[in-house]
Nucleic acid binder design. Sequence first.
DNA 1: AAGCATTAAATGCGTTTGCATCTTTGTTTC
DNA 2: GAAACAAAGATGCAAACGCATTTAATGCTT
Lengths: 131, 131
Amino acid sequence: MTETGETELVRRWRDVLACYSTVSCALDRALQETHGIGMSEFEVLDRLIDASCEDLRMHDLATSMYLSQSALSRTVARLERDGLVERSMCADDRRAIFVKLTAAGRERHTRARTTQRAVLAEHLMAEPARA
Amino acid sequence: MTETGETELVRRWRDVLACYSTVSCALDRALQETHGIGMSEFEVLDRLIDASCEDLRMHDLATSMYLSQSALSRTVARLERDGLVERSMCADDRRAIFVKLTAAGRERHTRARTTQRAVLAEHLMAEPARA
DNA sequence: AAGCATTAAATGCGTTTGCATCTTTGTTTC
DNA sequence: GAAACAAAGATGCAAACGCATTTAATGCTT
C-alpha cells in the first residue's frame, strides 16, 4: 500500500521504543539520584530556560511538553514545593498562572543539564544512524 | 569532546521524545479503545507470537521487554485474567512459570496487530528521515 | 447586561509503574 | 548434607500519569 513496508515500520517503532526506554530510564535515574528531580521536572526547567522571557503561562508550557495538562500542573506543583519555580497570578488574564524560575531553579537546571548531556552522550551516541 | 556536538545530541533526544510520545499515546489509546488492551499487553502477546515455541518463561519475556520484572508480572496477570494467556508450572525448574497464548489471545493479537500497523503507518510515517 | 459556551488551571480517582522485599526453589561451598 | 548464596516470580507500597470533573475567569451572542 505504501512505500515503507509494514515490517519496516514495525522495525522502526521497535528502534524508537528501545532507544526511548534505555535513555529515559538512565536519564530519570541519573537526574533523580544526583539532583533530586525527575525527567518531567527537568523538562519544565529546560523550557523555562529556553523561553528567555522569564515567565511562561502554564498553558504555553503545556503545549510544548509531552505531558497531560493535569500532569504538568502537578509537576509544577512539585517544582514549587522544592523552591525551584514560583507561580504567580497574571494580571491580564486572571485564569492564567505565570511560572517563573527561581535562582535555585536556575542553578539546579545548570547542574542537571551537565548530567543530562553526559547521559545522552553515553546512551544516545551508540544508536544506529537508521537508514 | 566527541564528533557529535552536544546540541546535536539534545536535538536527537528531543526527536526521539517527540516520536515516542506521539506514537505511544496514539497506539495505547487505539489498542485500548478497540481491543481493550494496553501497549504493554500487546507487546507481551507480540513476543509470544514471535517466539514460535509456544510457551516462554517469565524471565525470558522479561529480558526482551522494556518493563521491570514486577510490571511484567502484573501485565501477565492481567492478560491471564482476561483469558488471553495461561500460566503453568515448569517441571524442570519449579521457580519458573511458563506463559502460553490461548486461542483467544492469539486471535486478539491478530486483530490488534492490524490496529498497531495502522497507527504506525499514520503516525510514524511522517517522521523526518533525520540527517 | 444576562446567559451560555469556552478556556486556564486544579483536583479526585483509578491505573500502571518501579523499587524493595518476600517466598520458594535451585546451586554452590564447606 | 547443611548452610549460605543466587535466581524466579509475586506483592506491598508510594510516585506519577491520564481522564473526567470542578472552579473560576473570559468572551461572545442576543
